[in-house]
Nucleic acid binder design. Sequence first.
DNA 1: CAGGATCCGCTACGATACTG
DNA 2: CAGTATCGTAGCGGATCCTG
Lengths: 108, 108
Amino acid sequence: MTKNTKFRTPDCGLSKVQQMLGGKWKLLLLWYLSEKPRRFGEIRRCFPEITEAMLTKQLRELEQDKLIYREVFKVVPPRVEYSLTDLGSKFSPIIEAMHEWGEENLKD
Amino acid sequence: MTKNTKFRTPDCGLSKVQQMLGGKWKLLLLWYLSEKPRRFGEIRRCFPEITEAMLTKQLRELEQDKLIYREVFKVVPPRVEYSLTDLGSKFSPIIEAMHEWGEENLKD
DNA sequence: CAGGATCCGCTACGATACTG
DNA sequence: CAGTATCGTAGCGGATCCTG
């Protein structure tokens, strides 16, 4: 490689990844959903620090980016389940690796 | 696992990772430095979209987090070289994986 | 139960000018 | 060459209240 065009920013895949997963809770949410599908309430209870508004927003963004799937059951009371898409599933090993790296190396 | 304490936020390794690498340019910079050590000017020229102030800030943060090493040569004109630390090197396969995932799956 | 609607502060990001 | 020093801004993240 003579020119390092591969690092030029906007069209680089890595940049897109960062934009998609830059949100403060995105990685945590994806990681949580990688275990198994979850209902809104479950997620909320698992991450009490996130406000409902914020949680909704992040979930919607992940949905728009095709990382998670949102299934609405037409029942009363309402039931909504979030799960990883294929795309999201393909990413979860990376999240797992990031977590391991953090656990092993970030023991301040 | 009966309780999902592993997802509880603040003490989770994944959260720390996100805080460390959440910066808009951090991943790109680490990736660039994973090729080989670079001087400040080289980095700047490779990422003309980053202002000098921003670049300096991000590099300093990466340095504080022990991901990169900053070596100052006492010469005129000044020469400063940035390189990955062992910690940073251990993370670069993950960056590579993120990039590949992006390239393969984000072709909108 | 699973959200939507507002409002708002902070700080991450950036533009510009200057320096050892 | 490799930075600092200031200042300005947008939007992310959050608090709070409301609804199908």
